[in-house]
Design a protein around this nucleic acid. Structure first.
Lengths: 137, 137
DNA sequence: TTGACGTAGCGAATTCTTTCGCTACACTCA
DNA sequence: TGAGTGTAGCGAAAGAATTCGCTACGTCAA
């Protein structure tokens, strides 16, 4: 039976997901090579295949079996995964305060002027959105 | 020998750290109670003690043995841990782009007007800081 | 056909985290 | 003093994630 994908993807799973997000879809061999290239990871090819099998069982990846060799791709978008993991971090490490996370992200990593401008633009947009509906559940 | 604290604190370790950050220092019993209160965690008291021992070995917590009962406290500040974990998330899930994390944090969790103002203030400050030293490593 | 090479998959070993049972020791108070 | 209560610690079980060895099967070229 498929294991539940209850919690966050693990370390290695995340590495694989990143590869798949970037490529859009890869064979096991391609994933393995990318993995080896990215990290100093010197794992066996069958380890990669096993990880893909586990992830398939968990529902983290999809597989096109009609293709040969089979093509794996991420089951969830990068955005959705980011959102989930971000929310998790906020809850667990920032006591639920998105604000303090944002402030820390802004201050700790030095942003370029262009990036700051971008953030301002986002702020403007958010405040525009607030006007029409001053209060909603 | 002390295990290396190479990677991130694990799930339970983080829960314990949160308790210690909040209290500033607690006995094993206090940690255990807080743990039980926070989660529906119904773990044995000796499990908590063991976790503290493991975390001590990893260097995640400090212990005042002169006190009785002993007092445990976090070895690293919440801020420092936040910074490390945030950096980690940015690297691993946001391809190193702090900007896109910030934008997503702002857009996905609806912020209050006050919070948005706060972010603006931070932006102002950051841009002020940029002026005097237009470029530095 | 058959040998070389690559993909696919299973089961089990290894490693790390989380859990607990059991023991020892200190302290208190009737 | 000694029964009761609580802290401290050890070693090992249970669980989860990661790794690999070995086998089966397809394809392709000599």
């Amino acid at each position: 039976m498929a294991r539940s994908a209850s919690s966050q993807p693990t370390e290695v799973e995340l590495q694989i997901l990143r590869i798949l997000w970037q490529s859009g879809g890869s064979t096991a061999r391609e994933v393995h090579n990318a993995l080896a290239a990215a990290e100093a990871k010197e794992t066996n090819y069958s380890t990669t295949v096993k990880m893909l099998a586990v992830m398939l069982e968990k529902g983290l990846v999809k597989r096109d079996e009609s293709a040969s060799p089979q093509i794996f791709s991420a089951a969830t978008s990068q955005k959705a995964t980011q959102r989930r993991m971000l929310g998790d971090l906020i809850d667990k490490v920032y006591d639920g305060s998105a604000l303090s996370l944002v402030l820390q992200a802004l201050s700790s990593r030095k942003a370029t002027a262009g990036e700051l401008t971008e953030v301002r633009r986002m702020l403007d947009e958010l405040e525009k959105l607030r006007q029409p509906r001053p209060d909603h559940e």
